[in-house]
Simulated assay, not measured.
Amino acid sequence: MSSLVEFDSLYVHVPFCKNICDYCILYSVVENSREVRKAYLDKLESDLNQASKQLNSLKTIFVGGGTPSALSFEDLERLIKLLQGLSPQDEFTIECNPSSVDQAKLEMMYSKGVTRLSFGGQSTSRKTRKMLGRRTGDMELFSAIDLAQKVGFTRINVDLIYGVPGQTLADWQFDVEQVLKRGIRHFSAYSLILEEGSELSKRIHETDDDLAVEMYHLCEDLLKEAGLERYEVSNYAVPGQECRHNLDIWLGARYLGLGPAAASFDGVLRWTEKADLKAWIKGEQAEYDQIPQKERSAEVLAFGFRTKLGWKKERLHSLYGIDVLIEYKEILDTLMTQGLLEETKSSIRATQQGLLFADEIASVLVEYAQGISE
């Protein structure tokens, strides 16, 4: 860990899940041992104490997983108390599975300063959930949203997945409309990716990309009618309701990740904690990603192109110097000629078409940076 940097954001990975969905490859464990969970929280407390001097000016905290809400009331309360004193200036988010929250947990989170919830819904359709190996029902999702709103939460996100084999355009429209009926003001829509090693990839070998593109555009149209604007490839919000944690990270913020498999970035180095709960608890060394600065700036540049507004040149220059766009002028001009990027005097960003090809833009930029670094 860098001993000099003050981090802008903190991410905490809670690896525990009651069960693991078939599409998921994020690090998680099905673990119910009180002793293991205590050891996890003890290690987290130790790491927070060690990093305390670098967490004095946090803007955001994001607790993800895994399933943070799968912790018992007592363990979840201890976790939040550990983070509560860091007093993030802008946002404190916790991811929740609708099936593992109740009024007591929601009231406790709200009373202790959590400002934003993110619910993993994935689908309101039984057949789509079955295909995904998702065990949470639509009624659990709607009940959790209603309870959270009753408790006082006004910043609530719901995740849904589209492009699932067997899912029709009408199914997807129904999903989106059902969530909008709950008054949701932030929405994440993820195209299904068949990740190597997932249970789903063993059963399914391809998806309908053309249908997924139709779903992408339909989602934008439906949400726009409801007052939610796309602000990143997969994220929509009523203006002012954007996820500030993710926005900052897409635009080069320095963040510390704690917990097994959590990633960190200090502006120069990235490192990732061991994706093994027992090894992480024992304190095994994180894996460092050391690449040339030109590759790093290309990587950060590409992340920013995932956002609708892209880069304010002033912000980009503050991170990597006034010459950063000059270094990449040749490839940026090519991407603009292809209609994937557009530039003004003060900013550079992806076009509407470019947002569809954000991953390809990233690949081209990093490959170009590798070439000029050699």
Rank of each mutant, 00 (worst) to 15 (best):
A286S: 14
V179I: 15
Q290R: 14
F119Q: 01
R349I: 00
G152Q: 08
G163W: 09
Y162D: 04
V238T: 14
E225P: 00
Q122K: 10
L10S: 08
L200F: 02
Q290L: 13
Q178G: 02
R134F: 13
L55G: 13
Q149G: 04
S72V: 03
L301E: 03
D22M: 01
L160D: 04
M131I: 04
R135N: 10
W280Q: 12
V5L: 02
V366C: 05
A302D: 02
G252E: 06
C219W: 02
E343M: 09
C21R: 04
G152P: 11
K278W: 00
A279D: 14
S69H: 09
N56M: 04
M336Q: 15
V176W: 02
V36E: 11
A70F: 14
G283Y: 06
S118D: 04
S188W: 08
V5M: 08
T115K: 10
H13V: 10
K53A: 10
C96T: 11
I20P: 01
S57A: 13
L83G: 12
F16K: 07
D171M: 03
L79E: 06
S99R: 13
R185I: 01
L4W: 03
P260H: 08
V176Q: 10
D75N: 15
T154L: 08
A263I: 12
E107F: 05
A226T: 01
D47E: 15
E225R: 15
Q293W: 10
F305V: 02
I361G: 05
R244L: 15
K313I: 07
E374A: 08
T128G: 10
E374F: 02
Y320L: 02
G321C: 09
H186E: 09
E295K: 09
P292C: 05
Y162R: 05
F142K: 06
Y231S: 01
G339P: 07
L79W: 10
N32P: 06
I281K: 05
Y11L: 06
V151R: 10
L325F: 15
D175Y: 00
R134S: 05
I161A: 06
L319N: 02
M139S: 14
W311V: 02
R134E: 06
L319A: 01
L44H: 09
S57G: 07
F119D: 01
S28I: 05
S346E: 14
E196V: 07
D333S: 13
S373N: 07
I204R: 01
Q352R: 12
A262L: 04
D208A: 08
V114P: 11
R254V: 00
L141F: 14
E330I: 06
I156K: 09
D159F: 12
L277A: 09
R37E: 12
R349D: 01
M139Y: 09
F73E: 00
G66F: 03
P165N: 07
I94M: 12
I322N: 08
S198A: 12
K329Y: 11
S3G: 08
E214I: 00
F142Y: 13
V114S: 07
T351L: 04
V114K: 03
R185H: 12
Y368E: 11
N246P: 09
R126F: 00
T207A: 09
S57H: 13
L269M: 10
R134G: 05
E107D: 06
I94W: 04
G310K: 06
Q241P: 00
T344S: 15
A275N: 01
P292G: 03
I61V: 13
L132I: 03
R270H: 12
M109R: 01
S125P: 00
G252F: 12
S346M: 02
E91H: 03
